[in-house]
């Protein structure tokens, strides 16, 4: 399988990369890990005139806490996230997510930024970032702007990113004490996209009630889905089984999955419910709540 011809550019600074994007407009595409883009080019599902590889731009690979945020450089490899002591100790939901993306070899190339910027509702980070209330930082000719993740995904493979912008960083508010999160993915086998996936992030109040909950769903519609009603429902409630089941039902109501080889729509919606409940339970456990 051979991609159609294109020109490859490897700028060594963000400004050079932005200039190339500006120059070639819609005919250019940013290449990060290439784990989604290159297969599409090889199958010739997509054609592109210019690939702008951001892999040689220094300073885009990191995961650090700074100013009340966990900041992840857009070009950070999934494998690096999996190995980061910070992520492993404080953000198990991100470890959950990174560890089920594609397969271990793909994760050595695939980037966190690419997983978001591709705009694929089947990708795993979007749901987690929605649950965590993350923002993405993008750079364009007019400078830098931050976009809340819940405003980032516009449609199937479409994001708020303009063709002359580059996603540079993901910012996640450092969760308060008594917080926990989990991501669960139902997949047919390793390497598959999710039949359904659910991310849950909760903060418990002093009395043990849920102070705040974030829920994101994978492959549950044309865009990654934030289960807003379920989140609202949970706020202030004690995390008993009945409450979590109701939250699961509300989350599933937000889903509008399309049927494919992984299952019919009703199955996928039900899986969104089941996984939401399970993810909430795991999140509450991690937050120090009752198991």
């Amino acid at each position: 399988m051979i991609p159609a011809a294109f020109d490859y550019h490897a700028p060594e600074s963000l400004s050079d990369a932005l200039a190339l994007l500006d120059q070639h407009g819609e005919d250019a595409k940013v290449l990060a890990g290439g784990m989604s883009l290159l297969p599409m080019l090889k199958i010739r599902l997509a054609q592109v005139g210019h690939l702008v590889d951001i892999g040689r731009i220094p300073g885009l690979e990191y995961a650090k806490e700074e100013g009340g945020f966990l900041k992840i450089g857009a070009a950070t490899k999934e494998a690096a996230l999996e190995r980061s002591d910070l992520i492993r100790s404080k953000y198990p939901i991100l470890l959950d997510t990174a560890a089920v993306i594609a397969d271990p070899l793909v994760r050595n190339r695939a980037t966190v930024g690419g997983n978001l910027a591709h705009g694929d509702p089947a990708n795993d980070h979007p749901a987690t970032m929605l649950a965590l209330g993350a923002s993405v930082v993008v750079r364009g000719p007019k400078g830098e702007r931050a976009i809340p993740v819940d405003q980032f995904f516009r449609g199937l493979f479409t994001t708020a990113l303009a063709s002359n912008e580059i996603l540079t960083e993901i910012r996640i508010p450092v969760p308060p004490a008594r917080s926990g999160g989990a991501y669960l993915k139902l997949e047919r086998k390793v390497g598959d996209f999710a039949t359904a996936g659910a991310a849950a992030q909760v903060t418990l109040g002093a009395g043990g009630a849920i102070e705040k909950a974030g829920i994101g769903l994978t492959n549950a519609g044309p865009t990654p889905i934030k289960a807003v009603e379920a989140e609202k429902f949970l706020a202030g409630k004690r995390p008993d089984d009945q409450t979590l089941q109701e939250a699961g039902r509300l989350a599933a109501r937000a889903a509008s999955p399309s049927p494919d080889r992984r299952g019919a729509a009703d199955y996928k919606r039900e899986m969104a419910r089941v996984l939401t409940v399970r993810a909430l339970k795991a999140a509450i456990r991690r937050a120090g709540g009752p198991s």
Binding site: G34, L38, K42, L105, N108, R109
Partner: peptide, 13 residues
Amino acid sequence: GEPVKSCTVLAVQ
């Protein structure tokens, strides 16, 4: 040093 699938890496990369 990291294992990758070389059918999905450009030589120029």
